[in-house]
Design a protein around this nucleic acid. Structure first.
Lengths: 343, 343
DNA sequence: CCACAATGTGATAGCGCTCTCACAAGGGCG
DNA sequence: CGCCCTTGTGAGAGCGCTATCACATTGTGG
């Protein structure tokens, strides 16, 4: 916190729209039209303006644009921070990259906002004042009311990862269910019959959906779906979960793990207990993060394209802002199995 | 890229400053003074305004503030993206968290901007127009001219991590030299005499400084500083480097590795070659990232506080913006050795 | 050949603030 | 007791754009 440090400066940023207009021999209006890509501008005028702009290195003042246009030309990327380790997550990094890629070339800024649940009120007050045109939410836990509250204040929102709270909030997610299903089908095709899972936390849909996929896969193969242990996104908890599974069922011959990072702990325990991977126990992870290829042995895993997730979220949000109708309320992105040594 | 999607909306964000003034029974001017924490406001007026603000849930329009005040109330966090894996880096995550923590409570927004060298011109044009009041730069490589160019356009800048290009750009960095030195001192105190290093890439000061620290440590102990191999920030390159070191000097009994993630590959090779860690070869990493504690064996490593780095960068930048004199041009943050099993 | 649309352009009124200025009301000092 | 300085307050002029309107200039069908 600390005291309110005041930013205090008197800069005279480059040229104004006025000067561009003068140099191009047109009016401010026409320059504005060119900048905003409106129709009804002659090719001649457009060229003149463009030339003037590059000549003067003109860049329109966003504050003025926002004020006059009553739109912010900015999106918020809101990270619901709890464990605060979200940011270091490759998931987040990928999403961020995707969002950025989709924003490149449009004059839309990305405001990064971290918010713990106890700060939600401040956040909402801020966003309610029209400082951004829309919000992208990631790493929601449990049934966080934030997306719904943002919708209530009329702010377009897209959530990354299916929110647990059923509702009408548009979201984009990887097809975690099918991913889990494919993982199990693969294990079954390998002849495994005692297939456990280390599931993700129950307060995130990704965990639940992957678990459901696993269940379905076992059902298809008429195998018992009784071996479930839970872990959060750390190797340590993965190790604990694997210990528990081995205790409950020493005859395990395969494990579907809900995340690569959890699988790291699983592999560790398997190694320590003298189980060979994949000979004795096959392991399939999820994410296809960097960890997967560098694990020992390299991890067979379900790949999700997180960058695409970010792009799609942004696309969906921009579509809504542009007034497109017929946008799918929510989207599921395909996953694919990446075969490596562990299964 | 794609076409310019236009954000188009007509929202009527809550109350204006006018209404606050009316409710508080004062003028706009006074409300503005209260909001900006200026002096010469009576306690009575101040209270009335605060009451009105909370009552109306008023949040000032940033665009208007920026426009009228000729300051943006925003900082840019610029990530010089090359491998584009920076974002997933726990280093970046920590810095981001620190920056955010330092910004909390001030009305200053954080704009996230990724920029590849070929986009620098656009970036500079944008920033030159006064859209932000200052910039934080991270993950600079080589002698990237970006910081200097930003300085030239009059934008206050603080760089995270010492830039290679010697110059007058203020930076904040961990004391990588002392970190490396401490690592070697520790290895020496363990009785190791054949101490190699897997250095970081030569285009980043962090790599060079840690290497220098290693050299100094060996010098102090009158040991030969001949065993240097280089790696970038991947386990694979670490593995390669370790292979090379073992080939050149099979009698190695210790390695200082410039980053935990590189050490992962080093450990892998050591294991594969039948060297026990730490019995045969002691290993010290750098960063104290999550990887360090979950490695096998858990990694002794030099901890750097990246969150503090982010806070300090922001503090330094805000200080400059506030016109503080006597700010240190640059700062080095202390590192500390974290002892675990590997050395 | 004229009515009327489609196209192209400029003038200008704000957008919601901050900042400067003017001014009123005390308080200390010679 | 008049003077200035400090403290407190309000009126109003922009900040640099976009949006709206008015108007000129084509094209087009009856």
């Amino acid at each position: 916190m600390g005291d309110m440090t005041e930013i205090d400066r008197h800069r005279r940023p480059g040229p104004r729209i006025e000067e561009v207009a003068r140099l191009a021999g047109v009016s401010k209006s026409t320059v504005s039209r060119v900048i905003n890509g409106e129709q009804y501008v002659s090719a001649k005028a457009r060229d003149a303006v463009h030339t003037a702009i590059t000549h003067l290195r003109y860049s329109p003042n966003q504050a003025a644009r926002s004020l006059a246009g009553s739109k912010a030309n900015a999106l918020a990327l809101i990270v619901s921070e709890q464990g605060s380790r979200v940011l270091g997550d490759p998931f987040f990094a990928g999403v961020l990259r995707g969002v950025h890629a989709e924003l490149t070339g449009r004059r839309i800024q990305l405001l990064l906002m971290l918010s713990r649940p106890e700060d939600h009120d401040d956040l909402i007050a801020y966003l309610a004042s029209g400082h951004v045109d829309g919000a992208l939410l990631v790493s929601l836990h449990g049934d966080d009311p934030l997306p719904r509250r943002l919708q209530e204040i009329g702010l377009p929102v897209v959530v990354g990862g299916r929110p647990l709270a059923a509702g009408t909030v548009p979201f984009v997610d990887s097809d975690n269910f099918t991913g889990g299903l494919d993982a199990v089908r693969h294990l079954v095709s390998l002849g495994r019959t005692r297939i456990a899972t280390v599931a993700g936390p129950r307060d995130m849909a990704a965990g639940l959906d992957r678990l459901s996929g696993w269940r379905r896969g076992l059902g298809e193969a008429r195998l018992a779906a009784d071996l479930v242990a839970e872990a959060d996104f750390t190797p340590e908890s993965g190790a604990l979960a694997m210990e528990e599974l081995l205790r409950r069922a020493p005859d395990i011959d395969a494990v579907f793990v809900a995340a690569d990072i959890i699988a790291l702990g699983v592999l560790q325990v398997l190694h320590a207990r003298g189980r060979r991977v994949p000979e004795d126990v096959a392991v399939v992870g999820f994410d296809d993060s960097l960890l997967a290829s560098t694990a020992t042995p390299p991890l067979t895993t379900v790949r999700q394209d997180v960058e695409q997730l970010g792009r799609t979220m942004t696309w969906r949000l921009l579509g809504e802002l542009a007034g497109d109708s017929g946008l799918p309320p929510s989207l599921l992105l395909p996953t694919s199995l990446v075969r490596r040594a562990s299964a």
